[in-house]
């Protein structure tokens, strides 16, 4: 299949795939090696932003050229992944914040005092 492509394009597509995979891998290693939960949440984001994005871009270029029509499915994948990541991330992070505050752990910002806040309607 890859033989159908001109050399420079197959190099470009391969480079995107390899760089994307490298970024995703770095994120996964980060998830394992970093010390605290709040540091770890930054790791997988690399896979969902640029790592995944580059692999999807390579896929879009490759299939657009070999099928000889515009293939933009990948854009939708990227959109869905980007839109849903913050939801899970916030859920996990706020659960951890809540637990750390209840347990009174060090290094976590305190919950804002109720007295400071104006009465909400």
């Amino acid at each position: 299949m890859i033989a159908d492509l001109p050399l420079w394009l197959s190099i470009l597509v391969s480079a995107f795939v390899v760089l994307g995979a490298l970024l995703t891998m770095a994120g996964c290693f980060g998830l394992v090696r970093l010390k605290s939960f709040y540091l770890r949440i930054h790791g997988p984001t690399m896979g969902t932003s640029m790592g995944g994005g580059l692999i999807l871009l390579a896929s879009a270029i490759y299939f657009t050229l070999t099928r000889e029509r515009l293939v933009v499915h990948e854009l939708v994948i990227f959109l869905f992944v980007t839109l849903t990541t913050p939801v899970t991330l916030m859920l996990l992070a706020r659960a951890t914040l809540f637990r750390d505050r209840v347990e009174g752990n060090e290094g976590v910002p305190k919950r804002p005092e109720k007295a400071e806040t104006p009465a909400s309607p």
């Binding site: 994120g27 709040y38 540091l39 949440i41 930054h42 790791g43 984001t45 690399m46 969902t48 932003s49 640029m50 980007t82 839109l83 990541t85 913050p86 991330l89 916030m90 992070a93 706020r94 914040l97 910002p109 804002p112 400071e116 806040t117 104006p118 909400s120």
Partner: peptide, 27 residues
């Protein structure tokens, strides 16, 4: 929130509507 979360160096944690502040963790 989506932009800051999609950026690997920062994560949007908690928005406080009453004080309109947001808690962000920066890598």
């Amino acid at each position: 929130a989506v932009i800051l979360t999609a950026t690997p160096g920062s994560a949007w944690l908690e928005y406080d509507r009453a004080r309109s502040t947001v808690l962000i963790h920066v890598f």
